[in-house]
Design a protein around this nucleic acid. Sequence first.
DNA 1: ATTGTGCATGGGC
DNA 2: TGCCCATGCACAA
Length: 336
Amino acid sequence: MAAALDFNGGFNNNNNTFTFCCFYCKSMTTSFRYGWSLSDGTLAKLCFQCGFLYESGTFCSTFHAGTTGWRQCIICRKHVHCECIASAKDIFMMNNGGVCCIGCAKKYLLPAAEDNTEHKPVNDCPPLLFAWNNSIASQSMDHPFNAMATAANESNQMVMCGAQMEEQTPVIIGGGSSSTAMNDNVNGCCLFVSPQTGLIRFLNYYQMKEQQYLKDLGYPNSSITPMFKKILSATDAKAKSGRLVIPTKGARSHFPELSDDERCKRLEILDITGRIWKLSYRFWENNRGRIYVLGGLKDYITMWKWQVGEQVTFYRIDPEDKYLIVTEKEFPASSS
DNA sequence: ATTGTGCATGGGC
DNA sequence: TGCCCATGCACAA
């Protein structure tokens, strides 16, 4: 007897059981597990095996191991698959084209979304108007809203594309002085609307990460100041050398002064895990100038897997009077 | 052999 | 031209 189509998409085989076709592998199953969201708002029904792999987070690496579409999280470098619907929940598309895994996105990019104690605006920016598909409407303040912003354009509008936007629909924000203020360093900005006050808080990518560094290190109320940064050269990135040539200007203006009598000092520098690295800070002379280097970095370079072109930033934490070294694996373009 | 240090050279701005 | 700094090498610990 022909099976009757069930309203839920299953087949009644006339003995009170329903048979489902696994959305992914198309095998028939009598029990299913829910998978990812489909465009019609329902959830994909998966067979036991696919469902189990999906729930355990190994779906993509199991089924798509040999296919294209694998990219690296810009922060932790974990491989994430970006070409199937199943992985959509695990990735956060950056406005600069990079990809962030959802773990790092929650940790570094969207901390306000999970921190209910911090729904306080950090500035006095006026309420902004949101334009959605060219129709201006007041933004609902019912829910936290996070998105990645591209640079403010010439008319002081900010084009937004974010994880919570439908289909990457661009949104234009304008009418607030803050969009002008953000002009200089807006790439990777995260925007947050306070559900309590209705005011908009924004922190750019760098600021958000810096605040997170302080929290991670246990200095949530301290201040963190970038001192200088260095794009890693080929010789810097070689763990064998174990040293970093640091920009002369940054060294002179932020590190303790070295003299001909004291050509080397020991510096203790924290990494973002709180580990203390005892490094040598010294210089040698060259023609007319000094070359400043930070030595004793071999283990650090190995641990953080330095690669050419990556950026290392040195911070100062006050009032603890500590240095912090941060290896950032990839950066959105910054105009600063 | 491994790791750290100092120097000379040369390219680029 | 002057300075910065990337690089490779020699040498020391």
